[in-house]
C-alpha cells in the first residue's frame, strides 16, 4: 500500500508539473501561437465572467460584448492622443471594470422585470445600441475608423508590449478570475444564484430580493468584461466598433454552452475549442466558415450538455487532488 501511495502522489505531481511546464513553454512558441493562446485566455476571462450571468444566475445575456467595448474604449480614450490623456494601465484597468459594472447596472435595471427570452433580446438590443452609438459618436470615438496609436502599456514599470508580456498578464488574470468565481460559486451568493436559476418565485418567497441578486450578477460579470476590454485595447493598441459586433457576444455565449454551462472547466475547454477551431481551419480557405458551422451543429447534437460533463468541474478536481494527496488510500 505504501508503494501505491507514493506512485499516486508521484503521478499527481507529474500531472501538475506537466501543466506548469506547458504553461511555461508557451512564451517560447512562435509569436503566432502565443497570440492564439492570448486570445484563448481573453475569451476564458470573458466567458467566465458571462458565465456568472448565464450559467449561475440563469439569465441569458446576448449583449455581453458591450461591456468589453466599454472597457476597450476606456483605454482608448484615457491612454491615447485622442484627448491627449495618458493614464497608467493599471488605473484604467480599474476604471474600465468600474465603467463596465456601471453599464451592467444600467442594463440591469430595465431588464429585471423581464423573464427568459425577453431578457435575451433586450440585452442584445443594448449591445447593438452601444455599438451603433460608438460607431456614430464621431467626436468622441472617431466613429467607424476607430482610434489608433494607443499608448504602450506598462505595469509596475514592466513593459506590456509583446504577446508574451500579455500572456503572463492574461494568465495571472485568468487564474485570478477563475479562482474568484469559483470562490463565489461556493459562497452563499453562488447558491442563491443557482436557486434563482431553478425557481425565481420560490427564491423571492425565501425573502431574497431577486432584483438585487440579478443586478449583482450583471454588475460583476460586466466588470470582468470591462477589465477584459481594457486589456484588449492595450494589446491591440487600436479599437474600432467592428470588434464588438453581435457575433462576438454570440461567440462568448457559444463558448459557455459548448463547454458546459455553469462549469469553469467547461468554459476553458469551450474557449480552447472555439478559438483554435477557426485557426486550424485556415487551410480550408473559403470553406472555413461552412466547416466551422457544421462542426458546431454536429458537436451540439452529439453532446447537447456540453463537451465537459457537469460533474467534472473545478470542485471535483480540487477534491480529487486533495484526497489523493492527504489520504490516497480512500480513492
Amino acid at each position: 500500500m505504501g508503494n501505491s501511495v507514493i506512485v499516486r502522489r508521484l503521478g499527481l505531481l507529474a500531472v501538475l508539473a506537466l501543466c506548469v511546464v506547458l504553461l511555461a513553454l508557451v512564451p517560447h512558441l512562435p509569436s503566432y501561437y502565443v497570440r492564439v493562446v492570448d486570445s484563448i485566455l481573453i475569451y476564458i476571462i470573458l466567458a467566465v465572467g458571462l458565465n456568472l450571468v448565464v450559467g449561475y444566475a440563469g439569465l441569458l445575456d446576448l449583449g455581453f460584448i458591450a461591456f468589453y467595448a466599454v472597457g476597450a474604449y476606456a483605454y482608448a480614450l484615457l491612454a491615447s492622443g485622442q484627448f491627449d490623456i495618458h493614464l497608467p494601465f493599471i488605473v484604467i484597468l480599474f476604471i474600465g471594470a468600474a465603467a463596465g459594472a456601471i453599464a451592467g447596472v444600467l442594463l440591469g435595471f430595465p431588464v429585471l422585470k423581464l423573464r427568459g427570452d425577453y431578457l435575451a433580446i433586450v440585452t442584445l438590443s443594448f449591445g447593438e445600441i452601444i455599438r451603433i452609438a460608438i460607431n456614430n459618436a464621431d467626436d468622441l470615438t472617431n466613429g467607424p475608423q476607430g482610434i489608433a496609436g494607443l499608448d504602450r502599456a506598462s505595469l509596475f514599470g514592466l513593459p506590456l508590449t509583446t504577446p508574451v508580456h500579455f500572456y503572463w498578464l492574461l494568465l495571472v488574470l485568468a487564474i485570478t478570475v477563475c479562482g474568484g468565481v469559483y470562490y463565489m460559486e461556493r459562497s452563499i451568493l453562488g447558491k442563491a444564484w443557482r436557486a434563482l436559476r431553478e425557481d425565481q418565485d420560490v427564491v423571492r418567497g425565501l425573502g431574497i430580493n431577486t432584483t438585487t441578486l440579478k443586478l449583482l450578477a450583471f454588475a460583476l460579470s460586466a466588470a470582468i468584461g470591462g477589465a477584459g476590454g481594457v486589456i484588449f485595447g492595450a494589446f491591440q493598441r487600436f479599437v474600432s466598433p467592428e470588434s464588438f459586433t453581435f457575433q462576438e457576444s454570440l461567440l462568448v455565449v457559444l463558448i459557455i454552452i459548448i463547454g458546459g454551462v455553469g462549469n469553469i472547466v467547461g468554459v476553458i475547454a469551450g474557449a480552447v475549442v472555439l478559438v483554435v477551431l477557426p485557426e486550424v481551419l485556415h487551410f480550408a480557405a473559403q470553406y472555413r466558415l461552412l466547416i466551422y458551422g457544421v462542426v458546431l451543429v454536429t458537436v451540439i447534437v452529439l453532446r447537447p450538455g456540453g463537451l465537459v460533463s457537469p460533474r467534472f468541474n473545478l470542485g471535483f478536481i480540487i477534491r480529487k487532488v486533495r484526497t489523493l494527496w492527504l489520504s490516497p488510500s480512500k480513492t
Binding site: L254, I257, V261, G293, L296, V297, I300, P304
Partner: peptide, 13 residues
Amino acid sequence: LAPMLSALGMSIV
C-alpha cells in the same frame, strides 16, 4: 440553450 446554439450553428452553415 442547446437548441439555440444549434440554431446559431445552422445560421452560420
